[in-house]
Amino acid sequence: MKVTLKVWRQSGPDAEGAFETFTDVPVDPAMSFLEMLDTVNVQLEAEGKEPVVFDHDCREGICGACGAVVNGLAHGPGKRSTLCQLHLRSFNDGDEITVEPWRASAFPVVRDLMVDRSSFDRIIQAGGYVSVRTGSAPDGNAMPIGKPVADRAMEAATCIGCGACVAACPNASAMLFTSAKVSHLGLVPQGQAERDSRVLGMVDQMDAEGFGGCTNHRECEAACPKGIGVEYIAQLNRDLVRANLGSAAK
């Protein structure tokens, strides 16, 4: 089977970008999307041309490195899958496939399909942790955590930080990402002591990075490869109210 690829090429953060077209790229339905890009790159490199730049590492849908908007969809048409897990069997012979980087002002393009997501790291640095010195922890079973709570915390914690939620959102909001961490730590007893300061800090940072606000489009939920739902955004909003009341009372 053969496809035509229109890939975004941009030589640097401030450069103008444009689509480059690769026609009749031979592919195998069992190939992953990134393996298709590899094929294109091996050919380009052999010809002495610069390969298409994209982030990737695990190729198992867990590191969150990969990601691109494929035919208008973050991570492409696969359901609950990252770009590296998308296989060519989801396409047809002769298809034209458009590949673009995540587009958001808080995710500036580094080159081609690679973007700078360090804003996500800074949101975590603004409170996405439990302060605990190594070696000072009580026994792991000292504090029982009911299975339903542990399971919900785990669901929120499965976020891979890929940025698809931002890319899919018309406002480029990072609410799903932020709320997943706020909820994970807000659900478990260990996270209670810093619950208020955490949500305040992370939301402030999110705004400072230039992410947009959430106006309930729910595109983030649809794009999330881990199936993280907007109920965590509701949780964040409740925590935010709580924290603001708390800090107003002080």
Binding site: V132, G135, G140, A157, H184, Q190
Partner: peptide
Amino acid sequence: DQCVAQGVPF
């Protein structure tokens, strides 16, 4: 113990 205290959802 350390990981539980960090909130790792085992």
